[in-house]
Amino acid sequence: MLISIDLYTTLIPTVITALTAVVLFYTVSRELRNTLAVSSVKRISEYVTLRCPTCGYVKVREFKVGDYVGKVDDEKCPRDGSNLVIMGIGKEQVSA
């Protein structure tokens, strides 16, 4: 019977406490890692890729409402003066 008293009063609570501590530590550290990973990303950049249809000159600028792929932009090619065409619109995460 002595062994059962030791089990109930000492061993099981100790094991349960230890396991709880391990699980809590793991959960908290994982949450912390996730939070830090998210907070390290500062902003999302929305970009537009423009290309000159004649010489292939490529330029990237910020997205403006009204832009769409295939739109002939007002901006001219610095090489031959042709209007640049929007070839792609995308977003990427940029860290500051």
Partner: peptide, 8 residues
């Protein structure tokens, strides 16, 4: 969502 650079 908005097209990512990877998909582009």
């Amino acid at each position: 969502n908005a097209m990512t650079k990877t998909i582009d």
